[in-house]
Amino acid sequence: MKLTLHVWRQKNAQDTGGMVRYDVPNVNEHMSFLEMLDVLNESLIEKGQDPIAFDHDCREGICGMCGMMINGKAHGGFPGTTVCQVHMRHFKDGDVIYLEPWRAKAFPVIKDLAVNRASFDRIIAAGGFISVPTGSAPDGNAIPIRKQDADLAMDAAACIGCGACVAACPNAAAALFVGAKISHLGHLPQGKVERDRRALAMVQQMNIEGFANCTNIGECEAACPKDIKLEVIARTNRDYIKAAFTERPDSTSAGAG
């Protein structure tokens, strides 16, 4: 099949950028979407033109590195699918496809379709963990965990940090990403100790990074390649509100002795 692509090209963070049109002949329906871009890039290099920069790594939908808007839909809008898992059999001859990078103040463009998602790492660094230094853990079976809780934690922990939720949200909110981590750790007994501080710290960092608020509209849930549910955002809200009204300042004598 033959396709027409309109791709966002931007040399670097300072460049203003714009859409550029490419015709791609000979697309095979068994190719993955990224393989189609590989083929286009190979031909661009042969013609001496700068290939299109896009992030990708594992190409099996788990590393979270890839991601772009395909016709205005994050990862192409196929249920539970990252761009690298989209195959060309979903397209037909003559299709016109628009490719744009994730757009958010907190995800500045590096080049073309590649963006910088370091803001997500900083949110995790603020509180997305359980403090347990190596070697200090009790036996794995010491605390039984209800299967249902372990499953709910796993549902949320499936987040790959790709940023599709932010890209799809009209407010560029990171609520689903933050909620996924808060829910993952919150469903486990091990995560309960730091629950309040985690909610306070992660929400605060999310705001400092410049992600706007959630309006509960659900675009993120539809875009999420790992089917994270809107419910996780309610959990953030619950934990945060509770923490905001119950958390006390650190005791001034803490750590002394």
Binding site: F129, I130, V132, T134, G135, S136, A137, P138, G140, P144, I145, R146, K147, A150, D151, A153, M154, A157, H184, L185, H187, L188, Q190, G191
Partner: peptide, 11 residues
Amino acid sequence: QCVAQGVPFAR
């Protein structure tokens, strides 16, 4: 160690 960190192993 992993259980303590919150790795949601199957139960």
